[in-house]
Amino acid sequence: MRKSILGALIGSAFALAGPAHAGLVLDLDGAGGLAPVEVTALDWSQTSFLAQGANNAIVNFATQNGGSTEFQVYTHAKLTGYTLANGGSSGTLPPGFGEITLVAGYTERVTGVGTDSATFRTTGAGWLEIYYSAPSGTNATDLTGNGFNDGRLIGKLTGVTVNALGQFTIDTTSGIALLDGFDGNQYGTQQTVTGVGSQGALRAGTTGITLDPTFFLTTLTGFTINFANISIGLPYTSVNPSDCFNTTQNGAAVGSTGHVSTCDNVHVNGTYAANGGSGGYTPVVGAVNGGNDDNGRPLGPDFIAQTDFNSAVTGDVPEPGTLALVGLALGTAGFAASRRRRG
Rank of each mutant, 00 (worst) to 15 (best):
A253N: 12
F245K: 00
D243E: 11
D264E: 02
E38R: 13
P94I: 07
V162Y: 08
V284G: 00
K78L: 09
T224G: 07
T192M: 09
D316L: 13
D171V: 10
L178W: 00
I10N: 13
Q306F: 00
D293N: 12
N269M: 08
G233K: 10
G53C: 02
G200P: 03
G251A: 15
A15Y: 13
A177F: 03
G334M: 05
T248R: 12
S45Y: 03
R340D: 08
W127L: 04
T219K: 11
T101E: 15
N250S: 09
R2W: 07
A57S: 12
Y281K: 09
A118N: 05
S174D: 15
A324W: 01
N229H: 10
V326M: 05
E129D: 10
A22P: 02
Q64Y: 07
P94Q: 11
F215D: 03
S89A: 14
T63E: 14
F182R: 13
A333H: 12
T115M: 06
A20F: 05
A51N: 12
F303I: 09
S256E: 08
R121G: 02
S231K: 11
N275P: 00
A287L: 11
A77R: 06
G251D: 15
S12L: 14
G195H: 04
G208S: 13
G251E: 09
G81I: 14
V25E: 03
T237Y: 02
A201G: 07
G23Y: 01
T262K: 05
R340V: 07
T262P: 00
L323Y: 01
Y272P: 04
D264L: 07
T194A: 03
F49M: 08
Y272D: 12
N275W: 03
L50G: 01
A204Y: 14
G290K: 05
G208W: 01
T115H: 10
L34K: 04
D293C: 02
S89L: 15
A140K: 01
A35W: 03
G124T: 04
F71C: 12
R341W: 14
G280A: 10
D150I: 05
F71D: 09
G114N: 08
M1P: 00
S136G: 13
Q190F: 11
I170C: 00
Q167K: 13
D150F: 06
F61N: 05
A85N: 00
L157G: 11
G87F: 03
T210C: 04
V103K: 04
